[in-house]
């Protein structure tokens, strides 16, 4: 196997030419996005450098507490991001359900993956635990964000249909079924689609990273297959939990729709 090509500072700097090109294009076209592009590039650079140093420290000083803290920070950022991404103002009750679903859904999938699929020992080994947690939490965040948006929009748009079902004696579960099913479908579709295109249309980030760092493609693929299935499980579990509890937040104890 060939040695890994270490990127020099000037080589990394050369990659920033793409940002310069993008800045030139938006300036020529008069699109007011320069500030956001610069801020996001700087944030991405600083965050990754910082994360790099943190990870080096944590990998060298492996301790369960570090792994738990990092996973906790990921969860908090993901939950905050989900609540911010939704255009509609979310009720505190819905936010609590998002947090509960994310924590329960991702942690149970993550622990199953770490303990059963990877059989990691010790379980908190940060070199494995943290990247896997990042992928599971990140993908679940995307899934649940779509689920939240679809549920909130669907409950509002289908208000008449839901109320009409209630008028006929339907339970809130029956009345909201169509909206909940559609939200579930929208939430898991991107994960299913990415599985369809994987390996042909694009090589996933984790696998590419492993291959670039010298791992055999076969090992990288084995990990990728396992992690994709783990992501699918976590997205499904998180979204199901959220939708199962989330639709109830739109009804009061008298089974009246509150929108």
């Amino acid at each position: 196997m060939k040695d890994v090509i270490e990127l020099q500072i000037w080589q990394i700097a050369a990659a920033y030419i793409f940002v310069v090109i993008l800045l030139a294009i938006v300036r020529i076209k008069g699109i007011p996005r320069e500030k956001e592009i610069i801020i996001s590039t700087v944030r991405m650079t600083l965050q990754l450098i910082l994360t790099g140093y943190v990870l080096v420290y944590i990998f060298d000083n492996s301790h369960p507490l570090y792994t738990i803290i990092i996973t906790g920070i990921m969860e908090v950022f993901a939950i905050n991001n989900i609540c911010k991404r939704t255009k509609t103002k979310l009720a505190p009750k819905v936010k609590r359900i998002i947090a509960f679903s994310m924590i329960c859904g991702t942690l149970s999938s993550l622990m199953y993956f770490i303990l059963v699929v990877v059989n990691l020992s010790p379980w908190y080994e940060p070199r494995y635990f943290i990247p896997i947690a990042g992928m599971i939490i990140g993908n679940s965040m995307t899934g649940i964000s779509l689920g939240v948006t679809k549920l909130v929009d669907g409950m509002t748009a289908q208000k008449n249909l839901i109320e009409s079902a209630l008028m006929l004696g339907a339970t809130p579960k029956m009345a909201a079924k169509q909206v909940v099913d559609s939200a579930f479908d929208s939430a898991i579709l991107p994960t299913i689609n990415s599985m369809v295109g994987m390996g042909i249309v694009f090589l996933p980030g984790m696998m590419t990273g492993q291959i670039l760092s010298g791992t055999s493609p076969v090992t990288a693929i084995e990990y990728q297959i396992a992690i994709m299935l783990g992501i699918l499980g976590s997205v499904t579990l998180t979204v199901i939990l959220f939708l199962h509890l989330g639709y109830k937040a739109f009804f009061n104890k008298e089974h009246q729709l509150e929108i």
Binding site: N160, L166, M167, G169, Q256
Partner: peptide, 24 residues
């Protein structure tokens, strides 16, 4: 009315709205 289960009530006191929706 507040002592009667809403779902049970709506099953014996059924309402038809002014523009009733049609289900798929």
């Amino acid at each position: 009315l507040d002592e009667i289960n809403s779902i049970e009530l709506r099953r014996s006191v059924v309402m038809l709205p002014q523009t009733p929706p049609i289900f798929a």
